[in-house]
């Protein structure tokens, strides 16, 4: 009997799948992504190779919330005190949550994205280049969920963390574009998490990073958020 990392992962998995909210949020994700793909296939005048994945923009927010409440739900309910006495080193808990979140969300997103692509194809017919974006469309929301996990650990309060996440995801890019002089705004915007995420599953143009650099930029944001979250988890009294 002792604490090992695989055991902490197993425990976190048990906790994650036992929550009704997990299943509700992922069901919403599936319905929204596939539903939007169907609607766009049915109605769009000039669809592109990434039209089938437009819903991913929306569900990325939901997945971010899943990541956030994985941590803030523990602080809010007081469960964190029990969890920390079982694993007083604390950091293995955060890493285990990241493993569980990615391990659960990635296969689900892969299935959802494939279903969205299939739906699009059935309604609209084959679309060149569409399958090339599938991997990015599945991975991008998972990385944003991990970003949410980091922000949740940093902020520790559900409402504040969701507000912060939405500021980072939605408001920051717009503000940057407007607030910086000349074309500096445009040049910076492509490095924001949401723009980097979108670059993973859309046809690249001059306003976006290429897929490779975008993946690194987004992974960098995730690393920064998780590192910041880890610092608070370790330093602050729950």
């Amino acid at each position: 009997m002792r604490v090992t990392f695989p055991r902490v992962v197993r425990a976190e998995w048990t906790k994650f799948v036992a929550l009704r909210s997990t299943w509700i949020l992922f069901a919403l994700v599936a319905v929204a992504t596939v539903g939007l793909s169907y609607a766009i296939a049915d109605n769009a005048e000039t669809p592109t190779s990434s039209s089938a994945y437009l819903g991913v923009d929306v569900v990325s927010l939901l997945l971010g919330v899943v990541g956030i409440v994985m941590v803030t739900g523990e602080y809010g309910s007081g469960l964190v005190r029990a969890t920390f006495t079982a694993v007083p080193a604390r950091l293995p808990l955060l890493w285990a949550k990241a493993v569980v979140l990615a391990g659960f969300a990635l296969p689900v997103m892969a299935a959802v994205v494939l279903l969205a692509a299939l739906t699009f194809r059935l309604v609209r017919g084959p679309m060149p280049g569409m399958m090339g974006h599938a991997a990015g469309a599945a991975v991008a929301p998972v990385l944003l969920a991990l970003l949410g996990l980091g922000i949740g650990a940093l902020v520790r309060h559900t409402a504040a963390a969701i507000t912060g996440f939405i500021l980072v995801i939605l408001v920051a890019p717009t503000l940057l574009g407007a607030a910086l002089p000349d074309d500096w705004g445009d040049r910076m915007v492509k490095y924001t998490p949401v723009s980097a995420a979108q670059a993973l599953y859309t046809e690249s143009d001059s306003s976006m990073l290429h897929t490779g650099p975008a993946a690194w930029v987004l992974a960098g944001w995730v690393a920064v958020a998780l590192a910041a979250g880890a610092t608070t988890v370790l330093r602050r009294d729950p």
């Binding site: 055991r7 036992a18 909210s21 309910s77 029990a82």
Partner: peptide, 17 residues
């Protein structure tokens, strides 16, 4: 956590060890 059963709550602790 109010959303989990007594059993899952304890399983989540027991499995860490």
């Amino acid at each position: 956590h109010r959303g989990r059963s007594a059993r899952t709550h304890l399983l989540g602790l027991a499995r860490t060890h």
